[in-house]
Design a protein around this nucleic acid. Structure first.
Length: 352
DNA sequence: AAGGCGGGGAC
DNA sequence: GTCCCAGCCTT
């Protein structure tokens, strides 16, 4: 099968089985496609749809996104994870307004230079929204191509990725770039799935090496895994007389960057130290009330065991410089809290 | 509890 | 190039 047959088969399959009614496939502007691609970077379609619709309802245009407060943008992102994506989205919107007069750039190099956009995402935006010839290589396409050519080795490894890019480029047809890009993503997402691929229905199964050699179980090669370290932190649950909870804005880098959250503290401190910590780091005088059940949250690079400690607010200590951005969380709020923190707070409210 | 999904950027 | 970073959902 040459490259022309490959793309023809893919496109014919797309005409019958491809997805054509996803929210971001309607009124395909660079802005709308861009937002969808960023959300889809590590989140599955079914999860993204709800977030996407709410986000686009709130930020209808690139200008509106650029004008928004970062807290507001993060609020609409909260629960999706990988919050750098949202920060970059906002940053890029502002950058396009200032540097490109509000017009989404239309060359691969320009798009790829934007924060949060790499080669594959740039290709997706260009092909999907402007029907330009630009290959992509997302996880779906990597899987399809690795299987088709029986390429062993973790697809994230630079040498493997390079080989896959070569094929991605070579198979991209000379027409229908938008449909082809969507088709490859759909094929990977619906037929060429990681486990139990539906090979009999695949339009390119006759020449797929992994299928014909019965190797779809082992290709693509899984990412090499390493043991994740375990870290412990206190989770400071400070409540005032009104039942409001003390939260602070996290620093822009690190986990849950720029999100509002309960403060945390080194687990090396003992219960007594915690009140000192609150006084010195948060400028809040409080007393220990109780210890709640610890829970684990796993990131891609470590396990975090959080040990909630409930404290009663006594008073604020005025004018300590450098104390973080903080506020009291009221019952009804619009803030973006990390998913496990939200779960914890919600579970505490249920206790009453 | 374990695995899946996926890309960007700093060094 | 080679690490290192970042979370949620499904099974």
């Amino acid at each position: 099968m040459n490259e022309k047959h490959f793309s023809q088969s893919i496109l014919e399959w797309f005409d019958v089985h491809g997805r054509k009614n996803l929210p971001w496939q309607i009124n395909k502007t660079p802005y709308r496609v861009w937002v969808s691609e960023i959300m889809l970077q590590q989140t599955q379609v079914t999860t993204v749809i709800g977030y996407y619709n709410r986000f686009m309802d709130q930020f209808k245009s690139l200008e509106e996104l650029a004008k928004a407060d970062e807290d507001d943008v993060l609020g609409y992102w909260a629960g999706l994870g990988y919050y750098a994506r949202a920060r970059n989205l906002h940053k890029t919107a502002k950058l396009i307004v200032s540097e490109y007069d509000g017009e989404f750039p239309s060359t691969l190099d320009e798009i790829e230079s934007l924060p949060g956009i790499g080669r594959s995402t740039a290709g997706a935006i260009l092909s999907l929204s402007l029907n330009q010839r630009a290959p992509i290589l997302d996880g779906n396409v990597k899987r399809v191509l690795a299987r088709f050519h029986a390429i062993e080795g973790w697809t994230g490894h630079p040498s493997i990725a390079k080989e896959l890019w070569y094929w991605a480029e070579r198979y991209t047809p000379k027409t229908r770039f938008s449909d082809y890009t969507q088709a490859m993503m759909d094929l990977g997402a619906t037929l060429c799935t990681r486990s139990k691929p539906n090979c009999p229905q695949c339009p390119i199964n006759s020449t797929c090496r992994a299928y014909n050699e019965d190797r779809t179980n082992t290709i693509p090669t899984p990412k090499p895994k390493k043991a994740l370290p375990v870290k412990h932190r206190w989770l400071l649950h400070i409540e005032n007389q009104k039942g409001e909870i003390y939260i602070e804005k996290r620093p822009p880098s690190g986990i849950w960057g720029s999100l509002w959250s309960l403060p945390d503290a080194p687990y090396t401190l003992d219960g007594n130290d915690i009140t000192h910590y609150c006084r010195e780091q948060l400028a809040v005088e409080c007393t220990v009330l109780s210890y709640k059940e610890s829970f684990k949250h796993t990131f891609s690079h470590y396990h975090l065991i959080l040990h909630p400690i409930k404290l009663s607010y006594v008073s604020s200590i005025p004018s300590i410089s450098g104390c973080s951005d903080s506020r009291w969380l009221k019952g009804k709020h619009q803030l973006g809290l990390p998913a496990p923190i939200k779960i914890y707070i919600d579970s505490m409210e249920e206790e009453y």
